[in-house]
Design a protein around this nucleic acid. Structure first.
Lengths: 348, 348
DNA sequence: CTGTTAGCGCATTCAT
DNA sequence: ATGAATGCGCTAACAG
């Protein structure tokens, strides 16, 4: 019923081994026989059995990419760049790898389960993107899992994620702290002294680092922070909207709102506008990431541009062994302060 | 070196068969022995070999989701919904399926290659999202491939894509034509007679259907279309920006711009604004899809809301056999006209 | 350059 | 309820 390699061999009048060799292309085969084999493959409409092949060769062509939220372009852009370098269909790499993205939805359990599933499949490589959860138990579990993966020969790369020491994983981490600091310093430079901060979910490295950068800037300029000025939420628009209303309620005298990311900033803008406040005349707004839509906000968002596509591409190349890993296994990717219309001098 | 099922069996003092049975859970096993086995699994830190398992069982737990552009939330939202229903980690389905999304980048070759790769892996199901390429040869090739997949027992579901007759694939198609028509009728109702249209890439079903709806509306109201009023581009912001400038150059008297989707509409807004035109007082703008950011445009975008998450979830359930397929294997999902501030009466 | 031989690790009959 | 035996389809030595 289902066509096997043996069928192809019979039709091409060669041994199964020869068929395997022409299919894998990593062994010398006479041009004439190769053609005969290819012809038989075509005629029989044969497709290689992936599991059988993986079992026999003890390796697979699966490459996993883990993302926290596939609906968020932040991850989509990275994932797309990684995938294009993995070389799957149409990629430059030639080999036909199955680059697949797995959506954890920000859930620790799912992250771990996906890692196990990928381990099961004997994945060739795994790339984890975005911030990590800060729960100690979970971090330990992930680290253990990553250690096992690298030990088993799976290349593991972290992209936009803090390093995982002693796991063998290569890390390309974003300088969220530095970016956050630079951004807030920009606002302080404009004269702001009363800044609200809409943070991401607690227990996330990205959230913490960006917030730390913000606070470092305030401290460096002798500005004492009011506890009312910080609100935690999710990384989405709605969260920014709600949090901004809350901030306004707590302290109407704020002259600026710094958001965890661009989506949150967009929600903040909406809330301010609906509250009858002008941006930036009454309140300045800043985001983070510089996603494509940020330039279309009105006014355009001041933000920190993260080279998501570049970082993803590099992570993909490293995962494929086509680029050398950074020395020490860790490289820091910096963001670039991008000033646009949403930030200006404070009122009054 | 690597732990196998046999090792577990030895440690638990049972036969390999028994270990297999407790792991798969679809066979009666005494509670006491089950515990012993599980304990051994835990102690040895055993992970099932996916390829071996798939080979022996002749089925795999892989489910593929094909998207045209993973960086576009249009696809991200659908993919996320599909994945959550597939039941992978944390999904409601219980089973541990590896739901993976593959990014074709809109390339026909990649689409085909991914399909082949998934076929190789003996995927349990495949969901194809978004519009299809209209190249006849490619469509035939895809149809043939889908036929083989369903024939081999892989469930194939099309989500937001036209039906593929005689392939055994279930289709949940979006009513792009109806949505496009309704949208343009809304503008005509406001008094518009000179409407520019920024279409997506040619040779894409989505592009054609939306454009056909637009033209049907014009025809129904006796409006003759000027060939200068239609421009083709990509489904992104930049394309909308460029196309709008081009439209303005060709005919400055246009009173409205209808865009292929929301991202394009955002670019159109930017171009209009930079040209000193007010929205909607000077020119009305409309998008399609109602992606999350559309409500944050200034003014908020008039668009057609597509229930992406709902459709994706349904597609996922059908792919898992947890929901009955629509009668005839085809269901049409309608969009909903969503009027917001970007559309108004024409000037003058 | 090509054929032969032996498993890869597991799921499944068939027994018991 | 459990064990023993067989083979899934392929690749990797090893010969020649």
């Amino acid at each position: 019923m289902t066509v096997t390699l043996a069928d192809v061999a019979a039709r091409a009048q060669v041994s199964p081994a020869t068929v395997s060799r022409v299919l894998n292309g990593n062994y010398p085969v006479a041009a004439s026989t190769r053609e005969r084999v290819l012809k038989a493959v075509d005629e029989l409409d044969y497709v290689l059995n992936g599991p059988a092949s993986a079992l026999a060769a003890a390796t697979s062509d699966l490459v996993g990419i883990l993302v926290n939220d596939i609906a968020d372009p932040f991850f989509g852009i990275m994932a797309g760049a990684i995938q294009s370098e993995i070389g799957g269909p149409g990629g430059r790499a030639g080999g036909e790898r199955l680059a697949v993205v797995c959506n954890t939805g920000g859930s620790p359990e799912r992250e771990l389960t996906y890692l196990t599933l990928l381990q099961r499949q004997r994945a060739a490589a795994v790339v984890l993107t975005g911030g990590a959860m800060e729960d100690a138990a979970h971090q330990a579990a992930v680290a253990a899992k990553l250690g096992k993966l690298t030990e088993a020969g799976t290349r593991v790369v972290l992209c936009g994620r803090p390093p995982a020491p002693r796991t063998g994983a290569i890390a390309l981490t974003f300088d969220n702290r530095g970016g956050g600091r630079e951004l807030t310093e920009h606002l302080i430079g404009l004269g702001h002294r009363r800044l609200g901060y809409i943070a991401g979910p607690e227990e996330r490295t990205t959230t913490r680092h960006r917030l730390e950068g913000h606070r470092a800037a305030l401290a460096a300029h002798g500005i004492e922070e009011d506890p009312r000025w910080t609100v935690h939420g999710r990384y989405d628009r709605r969260s920014g909207y709600d949090a901004t209303l809350e901030l306004l309620r707590r302290d109407p005298s704020l002259t600026g709102v710094v958001a965890a990311n661009d989506s949150v900033a967009l929600g903040a803008c909406a809330a301010l506008r609906e509250s009858g406040l002008r941006i930036p005349q009454d309140v300045s707004v800043a985001g983070f990431d510089d996603l494509p839509f940020s330039i279309d906000a009105v006014p355009a968002l001041t933000t920190v541009r993260l080279p998501l596509a570049e970082a993803g591409a590099r992570a993909g190349r490293i995962a494929m062994g086509r680029e050398e890993a950074p020395s020490g296994g860790i490289a820091t990717v910096r963001g670039e302060l991008t000033v646009r219309g949403s930030s200006g001098a404070p009122r009054g």
